[in-house]
Design a protein around this nucleic acid. Structure first.
Length: 383
RNA sequence: GAAAAUCUAUUCCA
């Protein structure tokens, strides 16, 4: 059983979740009874793959088999529920485990807090954070980082600061992630100066900046349109030996697009290939937007085709960007074609898709069609 | 032999 569990865990880690499931079924056929570790490994793998329904099935199956979930199982499943956006279910499970006499540990609380913050239930998250301390579950670096990130994202800077101070008094001293969290949180709130201060602090007394720190700085400066500074950080990070990843390139391309430096955006996009940095849908969306905003619809069309040829499946963002480009070029026909295409492909238009197309129709005076689309939108999103 | 991977990127309008 231990060997099977190990293998299943390995398959899950390697994102080969279907193989893990198959393997799991095989082991049962061969008469080897999975234990709580096996089930938990599989539930964890399914949760990370956002396959909550299957995870829950196995959770039920294990109980039918007389295998009792333990604190690891509960924590794992709460995390999976969070990834699937099922806050209520996560809370319910948390209550259930307690009533069954299973004591939540640091992992459980950290997962729960993260789930609650992500769902915008800040007060409940805060409550859980206090509850864990009352129950003598000592928050660790992960817990603190999750709490600080959650507070910053809802702009509760004072509270975040207090948590930082509390953290400094414990054994869980702030690490790179803590600093990165603070830098990006402050950056998003427009506190560039404070973020830069923190960056210098990192350089002077550690923990030293890593690739993500640089990426966060570059993104922040890019959004503030401080192009030269962003580029300086980009150069510096490469000198320090950090390979910019696809996220970092996306920030740069987006920045160049927004400030109208299309050539630079394209250069970055090409540089990625030379550096062997793999592209993804997001970075394609960035370059599509840059091209579109500069008015190069033909290149948008070419690049849109290229991304699909390379095996990327356009998402709502991609369609919205491309539809916007066509609308701004006055080519409503093509925009509407894409609108239909996305529906056919199972990529459902969202509110942004509708407003983009409505705006496009209105701008060329096709008010009746715009109104009709508006009704369609209301019908879809008000039901 | 099982659990948090915690932090960085993209679309309309404002």
């Amino acid at each position: 059983v231990a060997i099977y569990s190990m293998l299943i865990h390995g398959l899950c880690k390697a994102q080969k979740i279907d193989d893990a499931c198959k393997f799991f079924e095989q082991m049962k056929e061969k008469g080897c009874r999975p234990n709580v570790v096996t089930y938990t490994a599989l539930i964890g793998g399914l949760g990370k793959a956002r396959r909550l329904a299957d995870a829950v099935l196995y959770y039920e199956e294990m109980q039918d088999q007389g295998c009792t979930p333990n604190v690891v199982t509960y924590s794992t499943l709460i995390d999976g529920m969070g990834r699937a956006g099922e806050v209520e279910k996560a809370c319910k499970l948390f209550g259930e485990m307690k009533s069954r006499g299973c004591c939540p540990n640091v992992y459980t609380y950290t997962s729960l807090i993260r789930v609650l913050f992500k769902a915008g239930r800040v007060d409940l998250a805060w409550e859980a954070f206090n509850e864990m301390k009352c129950r003598n579950q000592v928050p660790n670096v992960f817990t603190y980082n999750v709490v600080i990130d959650g507070l910053l994202k809802v702009k509760r800077f004072q509270d975040a600061l207090h948590v930082c101070q509390e953290m400094c008094r414990t054994d869980s001293r702030p690490d790179q992630v803590t600093y990165n969290t603070l830098i990006s949180g402050l950056g998003k709130a427009g506190h560039l100066y404070e973020a830069q201060e923190l960056f210098h602090q990192m350089k002077e007394k550690g923990p030293s900046p890593n690739a993500i720190t640089y990426a966060a700085m570059i993104d922040m400066l890019g959004k503030a349109e401080h192009v030269n500074e962003a580029v300086n950080f980009f150069v510096e990070m490469k000198i320090k030996g950090f390979m910019p990843d696809v996220v970092c390139y996306s920030s740069l391309i987006d920045m160049f697009g927004k400030v109208g430096q299309l050539l630079e955006a394209k250069r970055c996009f090409e540089e990625m290939r030379k550096q062997g940095c793999k592209r993804n849908v997001v970075v394609y969306n960035c370059i599509l937007d840059a091209l579109g905003k500069a008015g190069y619809v033909d290149e948008v069309a070419l690049t849109f085709k290229e991304m699909q040829q390379e095996g990327f499946v356009p998402d709502v963002f991609s369609f919205n960007v491309v539809i916007d480009a066509y609308c701004n070029a006055g080519d409503l026909k093509e925009a509407q074609k894409l609108f239909e295409e996305m529906k056919e492909k199972g990529c459902y238009p969202d509110l942004i898709t509708y407003s983009t197309l409505i705006k496009g129709l209105a701008e060329v005076g096709r008010m009746a069609e715009a109104a009709r689309l508006f009704e369609e939108m209301e019908a879809t999103y008000h039901a």
